[in-house]
Design a protein around this nucleic acid. Structure first.
Length: 196
DNA sequence: AAGTAGATGTTCT
DNA sequence: GAACATCTACTTA
């Protein structure tokens, strides 16, 4: 009998997000993210923390960033350039602002729906960038603050965490704290937003 | 392949 | 007003 290759490991719970955002960002590479059953494998993320000026939570709690000061394991959604809905996983401990921006997915679940939402057939570009991920998954402000371990979200650990090669680099699009190497990606993936 | 401009609206100075 | 954790379409090579 042949060994069954499962697409992913166990479902992540709230405790999986309570920790250092840089460490969690690294571990999220290769995980699977679904919203209402639509999504794919996480191939690129960035970490953000209250302690550095590149982060939205650097100034402390505001109406916009409040979710990042709430419990870990919830969604922080922001609108970028007036157009794009970008999704973050809130990490750390309640009261300390930090999170992980989901920058790119390898689409694996319900490609049909993703292509519809994105209005294109080029699989490589469906989820290659935070704005594209938001559109592909149908993210809106309705998702702000929702738990990642409950419907409509589901996040699954990688099936084979030891075989995943993670590459690191500076975060994209920042003028402040642009030197921190807090961008992480799946080595060799063709679904990255940009080369490392 | 690489560069530029325009879209579009909330937040910050 | 300016900046902004970006994307697309269009230009130039």
């Amino acid at each position: 009998m042949t060994k069954r290759q499962f697409p992913h490991g166990r479902r992540l719970g709230r405790h999986d997000f309570s920790g250092d955002p840089v460490e969690i960002a690294r571990q999220l590479i290769g995980a699977t993210l679904l919203v209402d059953g639509v999504g794919g494998r996480i191939v690129e993320v960035e970490a953000y923390d209250q302690s550095e000026p590149g982060s939205h939570c650097y100034p402390g709690p505001t109406p916009r960033n409040l979710a990042m000061f709430g419990p870990p394991g919830h969604a922080y959604v922001y609108i970028n350039y007036g157009i794009h809905f970008c999704l973050n996983f809130v990490c750390g401990k309640k009261g300390h602002g930090c999170g992980v921006l989901i920058r790119a997915l390898e689409p694996t679940h319900n490609l049909k729906r993703i292509r519809e939402r994105r209005g294109m057939d080029n699989d490589r570009l469906l989820c290659a960038g935070p704005g594209r991920v938001g559109q592909a998954l149908g993210i809106t402000m309705d998702h702000y603050g929702l738990a990642l371990y409950q419907s409509p979200f589901s996040v699954y650990a990688p099936a084979n965490p030891t075989e995943i090669e993670v590459i690191t680099g500076p975060r994209i699009g920042l003028k402040k704290a642009a030197d921190l190497p807090w961008r992480f990606g799946l080595a060799g993936s063709r679904y990255l937003s940009r080369k490392f």
